[in-house]
Amino acid sequence: MSEFIVGARGHDFGRHSVEELLSSIGGAGFRCTQLAYTKAVEGVKSYADVTPELVAATNAAVQKSGVSIAVDGTYVELGYADEDKRRAEVAKALSQVPVAKALRAGCMGSETTNMAKQPTVSRREAQEALLRSLSEILPVCEEQGVLFAVECVYYHAMNTPEAVRMVLDTIASPNLRVICDLANYVGPENASVDAQRRLWDKVGSWYGDRIVAVHFKGQSFKPDGTLYSTRLEDSCVDYRGGFEMLRALPQPLLPVLREEAVPARAASDIAFMKSFF
């Protein structure tokens, strides 16, 4: 049965030095983070700016703050069908494998490309591109002992439990894992509790043991199906059913990371999150 450690996404706290950033996250009551250097750290405009000196400063800040790096957030577009664009994104990911290892991060993490970014490409084509990208990234991760996790998102290339299972089965790497954002499985047509429970059954039984981190955010849908963000308390997400599934997993410890965190609301958000632990 899994236990949980509560954390937050780093770039919701703004751009700071790594010491200031981790101090702020820890001061808000979170114990771990998803760190995306290009979104959260002053002076980092590209992955080329993630220097050994910056990594060393990050490790020092981890020790000082007690906030661990649950996910090294590597935001890359793994589902680009355009080969030149796809290879450039893979190169970015490969450049960060040694960084994740040096940080002793729980995993590297990426989404799988919003379909709106390439509107003339079919989802099948995007998934084939995703598989090509992962087949190039995972051997390097295996060599360096780094886990690489992909996240299912309703409107991305990898968009359903079925798609996740296909990717895991096709790549078949022991270092390929999953970030589980309960909200990202839910669309307007499957937002009922019964429909969500069927999703959680698939996630838990098909690849629950491959989940390496959990995201936690609030969302709902307008009558026309438009997605919008909410406070956690107002969300349509079936957290209770989702955490019944997560608690039954064999992982001894899972980080649960608040997305879209508002530091001033951290205490009430943490209390709400922990109510499902």
Rank of each mutant, 00 (worst) to 15 (best):
D82K: 02
V62Q: 10
D72M: 13
D82S: 00
A56N: 07
D84N: 03
E77D: 14
E77H: 13
V62G: 05
G73F: 10
E77P: 00
A61C: 04
V71T: 07
V55I: 09
D84H: 00
L78C: 09
N59M: 04
E83L: 01
S68A: 14
D72W: 11
I69Y: 11
G66H: 09
V71G: 05
A70S: 15
G79H: 09
I69M: 10
G73Q: 08
A57L: 06
V76I: 12
K64D: 10
A70H: 11
V71L: 10
K64E: 12
G66S: 10
Y75F: 15
A56L: 04
V76M: 07
V67H: 13
V55A: 01
V55R: 03
Q63W: 01
V67I: 11
D84R: 08
V71P: 07
Y75T: 12
S68Y: 13
E77F: 14
V55C: 01
A61N: 06
Y75G: 13
G73H: 08
Y80L: 13
V55G: 02
L78K: 03
G66D: 11
D72S: 14
Y80G: 01
A81N: 05
L54N: 03
Y75E: 14
E83F: 00
A70Y: 09
V76Q: 05
S68F: 13
V71A: 10
G73S: 12
T74V: 15
E53F: 00
E77K: 15
E53H: 08
A61M: 04
V55N: 01
T74R: 04
A81C: 10
N59H: 02
G79P: 04
D72F: 12
Q63T: 15
S65I: 09
G79S: 08
V76H: 06
T74C: 15
S65R: 12
V62C: 12
N59F: 02
D72P: 02
E83P: 00
L78D: 01
A81Y: 02
L54P: 04
V76R: 10
A56K: 11
S65Q: 12
Y75C: 14
A61K: 04
E77C: 11
D72R: 07
A61R: 07
G79K: 09
V71H: 08
V62E: 03
L78A: 04
T74I: 14
D72A: 14
I69W: 09
Y75M: 15
G79E: 07
D84I: 00
Y80Q: 09
G66C: 11
A81V: 13
G73T: 08
T74G: 04
G66K: 12
T74Y: 00
Y75Q: 14
V67W: 12
N59D: 01
G79V: 05
A61S: 11
E77T: 04
V62F: 08
Y80D: 04
Y75K: 09
G79R: 09
T58C: 06
E83H: 00
